[in-house]
Protein backbone atom coordinates (compact mmCIF):
# COMPACT_ATOMS: atom_id res chain seq x y z
CA UNK A 1 0.00 0.00 0.00
CA UNK A 2 1.37 3.37 -1.03
CA UNK A 3 -0.24 6.37 0.61
CA UNK A 4 0.49 9.89 -0.57
CA UNK A 5 -0.88 12.77 1.50
CA UNK A 6 -0.91 16.46 0.72
CA UNK A 7 2.02 16.28 -1.64
CA UNK A 8 3.08 19.44 -3.44
CA UNK A 9 6.28 19.98 -5.32
CA UNK A 10 7.78 22.97 -7.06
CA UNK A 11 11.06 23.84 -8.72
CA UNK A 12 12.28 27.44 -8.72
CA UNK A 13 8.88 28.72 -7.63
CA UNK A 14 7.11 26.84 -10.41
CA UNK A 15 4.47 24.43 -9.11
CA UNK A 16 4.82 21.02 -10.69
CA UNK A 17 2.60 18.94 -8.44
CA UNK A 18 -0.14 20.30 -6.24
CA UNK A 19 -2.16 18.78 -3.45
CA UNK A 20 -1.78 15.15 -4.37
CA UNK A 21 -3.67 12.66 -2.21
CA UNK A 22 -3.45 9.16 -3.50
CA UNK A 23 -3.76 5.64 -2.18
CA UNK A 24 -2.61 2.67 -4.13
CA UNK A 25 -3.76 -0.60 -2.73
CA UNK A 26 -1.78 -3.79 -2.83
CA UNK A 27 -2.10 -5.96 -5.93
CA UNK A 28 -3.34 -3.14 -8.12
CA UNK A 29 -2.26 -2.62 -11.73
CA UNK A 30 -2.04 1.15 -11.87
CA UNK A 31 -1.62 3.37 -14.89
CA UNK A 32 -0.63 7.00 -14.50
CA UNK A 33 -1.60 9.04 -17.50
CA UNK A 34 -1.38 12.70 -18.38
CA UNK A 35 0.09 15.00 -21.02
CA UNK A 36 3.79 15.75 -21.39
CA UNK A 37 5.06 17.82 -18.50
CA UNK A 38 2.16 16.79 -16.25
CA UNK A 39 4.51 15.73 -13.48
CA UNK A 40 4.18 11.96 -13.85
CA UNK A 41 7.91 11.23 -13.75
CA UNK A 42 8.34 13.73 -10.93
CA UNK A 43 5.70 11.95 -8.87
CA UNK A 44 7.47 8.61 -9.33
CA UNK A 45 10.83 10.15 -8.42
CA UNK A 46 9.33 11.58 -5.24
CA UNK A 47 7.87 8.22 -4.27
CA UNK A 48 11.20 6.51 -4.94
CA UNK A 49 13.23 9.01 -2.95
CA UNK A 50 15.15 10.53 -5.86
CA UNK A 51 13.79 13.95 -4.98
CA UNK A 52 13.44 15.35 -1.47
CA UNK A 53 9.87 15.78 -0.31
CA UNK A 54 9.20 19.44 0.53
CA UNK A 55 5.66 19.02 1.83
CA UNK A 56 3.22 16.23 2.44
CA UNK A 57 4.03 12.65 3.24
CA UNK A 58 4.51 9.36 1.45
CA UNK A 59 4.11 6.08 3.24
CA UNK A 60 4.80 2.63 1.90
CA UNK A 61 3.24 -0.22 3.86
CA UNK A 62 2.67 2.20 6.71
CA UNK A 63 6.32 3.27 6.94
CA UNK A 64 7.77 6.63 5.78
CA UNK A 65 8.90 5.94 2.23
CA UNK A 66 12.61 6.67 2.72
CA UNK A 67 12.82 4.20 5.60
CA UNK A 68 10.95 1.59 3.63
CA UNK A 69 13.22 2.06 0.61
CA UNK A 70 16.33 1.50 2.72
CA UNK A 71 15.05 -1.96 3.63
CA UNK A 72 13.43 -3.16 0.42
CA UNK A 73 14.31 -3.34 -3.24
CA UNK A 74 11.95 -1.77 -5.76
CA UNK A 75 11.90 -2.54 -9.43
CA UNK A 76 12.12 0.79 -11.23
CA UNK A 77 12.44 1.70 -14.85
CA UNK A 78 13.38 5.37 -15.24
CA UNK A 79 12.16 7.25 -18.28
CA UNK A 80 15.75 8.17 -19.06
CA UNK A 81 18.93 7.05 -17.39
CA UNK A 82 22.15 8.97 -17.75
CA UNK A 83 25.22 6.93 -18.50
CA UNK A 84 28.28 6.96 -20.70
CA UNK A 85 27.73 4.73 -23.73
CA UNK A 86 31.33 3.63 -23.58
CA UNK A 87 31.02 2.50 -19.97
CA UNK A 88 32.54 -1.00 -19.77
CA UNK A 89 29.45 -2.81 -18.49
CA UNK A 90 27.70 -5.73 -20.16
CA UNK A 91 23.94 -6.19 -20.22
CA UNK A 92 24.40 -8.78 -17.48
CA UNK A 93 26.33 -6.29 -15.30
CA UNK A 94 23.48 -3.85 -15.68
CA UNK A 95 20.87 -6.40 -14.60
CA UNK A 96 23.03 -7.47 -11.65
CA UNK A 97 22.83 -3.87 -10.44
CA UNK A 98 19.26 -4.67 -9.45
CA UNK A 99 20.58 -7.23 -6.97
CA UNK A 100 23.53 -5.19 -5.67
CA UNK A 101 21.69 -3.95 -2.59
CA UNK A 102 21.02 -7.51 -1.38
CA UNK A 103 24.72 -8.18 -0.94
CA UNK A 104 26.79 -6.98 2.01
CA UNK A 105 29.26 -4.16 1.41
CA UNK A 106 32.16 -5.38 -0.69
CA UNK A 107 30.71 -8.84 -1.41
CA UNK A 108 30.94 -10.14 -4.97
CA UNK A 109 28.12 -11.54 -7.07
CA UNK A 110 27.97 -15.32 -7.09
CA UNK A 111 26.71 -17.86 -9.59
CA UNK A 112 23.27 -17.69 -7.95
CA UNK A 113 23.01 -13.98 -8.69
CA UNK A 114 24.16 -14.45 -12.25
CA UNK A 115 21.53 -17.14 -12.79
CA UNK A 116 18.83 -14.83 -11.48
CA UNK A 117 20.03 -12.04 -13.75
CA UNK A 118 20.05 -14.38 -16.75
CA UNK A 119 16.55 -15.48 -15.87
CA UNK A 120 15.41 -11.84 -15.83
CA UNK A 121 17.07 -11.29 -19.21
CA UNK A 122 15.23 -14.35 -20.48
CA UNK A 123 11.87 -12.90 -19.45
CA UNK A 124 12.54 -9.81 -21.53
CA UNK A 125 13.95 -11.97 -24.36
CA UNK A 126 17.45 -10.57 -24.19
CA UNK A 127 19.50 -13.41 -22.77
CA UNK A 128 21.45 -13.61 -26.03
CA UNK A 129 22.70 -10.09 -25.31
CA UNK A 130 23.99 -10.85 -21.79
CA UNK A 131 27.66 -10.50 -22.69
CA UNK A 132 27.30 -7.51 -25.01
CA UNK A 133 28.61 -4.11 -23.92
CA UNK A 134 25.70 -1.79 -23.13
CA UNK A 135 27.00 0.77 -25.60
CA UNK A 136 26.42 -1.63 -28.49
CA UNK A 137 22.74 -2.29 -27.80
CA UNK A 138 19.93 -0.76 -29.83
CA UNK A 139 17.43 1.53 -28.09
CA UNK A 140 14.79 -1.17 -27.75
CA UNK A 141 17.31 -3.81 -26.65
CA UNK A 142 18.60 -1.46 -24.00
CA UNK A 143 15.06 -0.77 -22.80
CA UNK A 144 14.47 -4.52 -22.42
CA UNK A 145 17.69 -4.87 -20.43
CA UNK A 146 16.57 -2.04 -18.14
CA UNK A 147 13.24 -3.83 -17.76
CA UNK A 148 15.13 -6.99 -16.80
CA UNK A 149 16.96 -4.99 -14.13
CA UNK A 150 13.62 -3.77 -12.78
CA UNK A 151 12.34 -7.35 -12.61
CA UNK A 152 15.40 -9.10 -11.23
CA UNK A 153 15.02 -8.21 -7.55
CA UNK A 154 11.56 -9.79 -7.46
CA UNK A 155 10.28 -6.80 -5.53
CA UNK A 156 6.78 -6.29 -4.25
CA UNK A 157 6.35 -3.08 -6.24
CA UNK A 158 7.20 -2.53 -9.88
CA UNK A 159 7.35 1.10 -10.91
CA UNK A 160 7.81 1.77 -14.60
CA UNK A 161 8.12 5.09 -16.39
CA UNK A 162 6.97 4.62 -19.98
CA UNK A 163 8.14 1.01 -20.35
CA UNK A 164 6.81 0.84 -23.90
CA UNK A 165 9.17 3.59 -25.07
CA UNK A 166 11.29 2.30 -27.97
CA UNK A 167 9.75 -1.17 -27.76
CA UNK A 168 8.25 -2.58 -30.96
CA UNK A 169 4.59 -3.58 -30.99
CA UNK A 170 4.99 -7.29 -30.20
CA UNK A 171 7.54 -6.26 -27.57
CA UNK A 172 5.03 -3.94 -25.91
CA UNK A 173 2.27 -6.54 -26.01
CA UNK A 174 4.40 -9.31 -24.56
CA UNK A 175 5.81 -7.00 -21.92
CA UNK A 176 2.37 -5.93 -20.73
CA UNK A 177 1.29 -9.56 -20.76
CA UNK A 178 4.28 -10.30 -18.54
CA UNK A 179 3.31 -7.43 -16.24
CA UNK A 180 -0.18 -8.88 -16.00
CA UNK A 181 1.26 -12.24 -15.01
CA UNK A 182 3.42 -10.63 -12.33
CA UNK A 183 0.44 -8.62 -11.17
CA UNK A 184 -1.68 -11.74 -10.92
CA UNK A 185 1.10 -13.34 -8.91
CA UNK A 186 0.64 -10.56 -6.36
CA UNK A 187 2.91 -7.71 -7.39
CA UNK A 188 1.69 -4.15 -7.40
CA UNK A 189 2.47 -2.62 -10.78
CA UNK A 190 2.54 1.12 -11.35
CA UNK A 191 3.23 2.31 -14.84
CA UNK A 192 3.30 5.64 -16.59
CA UNK A 193 2.22 5.35 -20.16
CA UNK A 194 0.93 7.25 -23.16
CA UNK A 195 -0.43 4.13 -24.82
CA UNK A 196 -4.07 4.45 -23.72
CA UNK A 197 -5.17 1.56 -25.89
CA UNK A 198 -2.85 -0.92 -24.19
CA UNK A 199 -3.57 0.53 -20.77
CA UNK A 200 -7.31 0.15 -21.03
CA UNK A 201 -6.71 -3.50 -21.81
CA UNK A 202 -4.41 -4.25 -18.89
CA UNK A 203 -4.82 -1.79 -16.04
CA UNK A 204 -7.22 -2.00 -13.14
CA UNK A 205 -6.71 1.46 -11.71
CA UNK A 206 -6.21 4.74 -13.48
CA UNK A 207 -4.53 7.87 -12.17
CA UNK A 208 -5.10 10.96 -14.32
CA UNK A 209 -2.52 13.55 -13.52
CA UNK A 210 -1.96 17.04 -14.75
CA UNK A 211 -0.22 18.95 -12.00
CA UNK A 212 -3.25 18.02 -9.91
CA UNK A 213 -4.98 14.69 -9.67
CA UNK A 214 -8.03 14.53 -11.91
CA UNK A 215 -9.02 11.03 -11.06
CA UNK A 216 -7.87 7.95 -9.32
CA UNK A 217 -10.33 5.21 -9.77
CA UNK A 218 -11.14 1.86 -11.37
CA UNK A 219 -10.28 2.00 -15.04
CA UNK A 220 -13.79 1.39 -16.40
CA UNK A 221 -15.19 4.32 -14.41
CA UNK A 222 -13.11 6.86 -16.29
CA UNK A 223 -15.23 8.83 -18.74
CA UNK A 224 -14.53 11.29 -21.48
CA UNK A 225 -15.11 14.24 -19.19
CA UNK A 226 -12.25 13.23 -16.92
CA UNK A 227 -10.06 12.60 -19.92
CA UNK A 228 -10.91 16.01 -21.23
CA UNK A 229 -10.08 17.58 -17.88
CA UNK A 230 -6.73 15.83 -17.75
CA UNK A 231 -5.60 16.42 -21.29
CA UNK A 232 -7.74 19.42 -22.20
CA UNK A 233 -6.22 21.64 -19.56
CA UNK A 234 -2.80 21.16 -21.08
CA UNK A 235 -4.09 22.52 -24.35
CA UNK A 236 -5.33 25.65 -22.63
CA UNK A 237 -1.99 26.12 -20.85
CA UNK A 238 -0.19 25.91 -24.16
CA UNK A 239 -2.56 28.47 -25.65
CA UNK A 240 -1.88 30.83 -22.79
CA UNK A 241 1.88 30.52 -23.20
CA UNK A 242 2.13 31.14 -26.91
Amino acid sequence: MIRIRGLSFSIDGLTILEDIDLEIAEGEFVAIIGPNGAGKSTLLKLVLGFLPLPSGSIEIDGVPHLDWLKQHPVGYLPQREEFDRRFPASALDLVLMGLAGDLPLGARFGERHRQRALQALRTTRTEALAKKPIGSLSGGELQRVFLARALVSDSKYLILDEPEASLDMPGTQSFFALLRELNQAGKTVITVSHDLQTLSEYCSFLVCLNRRLHCHTQTDLVNSEIMHKTFGEAVRIIEKDY
Binding site: L48, K70, Y76, F83, M97, A100, G101, G106
Partner: peptide, 21 residues
Protein backbone atom coordinates in the same frame (compact mmCIF):
# COMPACT_ATOMS: atom_id res chain seq x y z
CA UNK B 1 37.35 -4.52 -1.43
CA UNK B 2 34.72 -2.22 -2.91
CA UNK B 3 34.90 -3.19 -6.58
CA UNK B 4 31.17 -3.72 -7.09
CA UNK B 5 30.36 -0.44 -5.34
CA UNK B 6 32.97 1.49 -7.35
CA UNK B 7 31.77 -0.10 -10.57
CA UNK B 8 28.16 1.02 -10.15
CA UNK B 9 29.14 4.35 -8.61
CA UNK B 10 31.11 5.08 -11.77
CA UNK B 11 28.20 3.94 -13.93
CA UNK B 12 25.66 6.26 -12.31
CA UNK B 13 25.93 7.43 -8.72
CA UNK B 14 22.24 8.26 -8.35
CA UNK B 15 21.06 4.85 -9.56
CA UNK B 16 23.69 3.11 -7.45
CA UNK B 17 22.30 4.85 -4.38
CA UNK B 18 18.78 3.87 -5.42
CA UNK B 19 19.81 0.22 -5.66
CA UNK B 20 20.85 0.50 -2.00
CA UNK B 21 24.57 0.68 -2.55
Amino acid sequence: GLYKELFYLSYNAEMAQFYRL
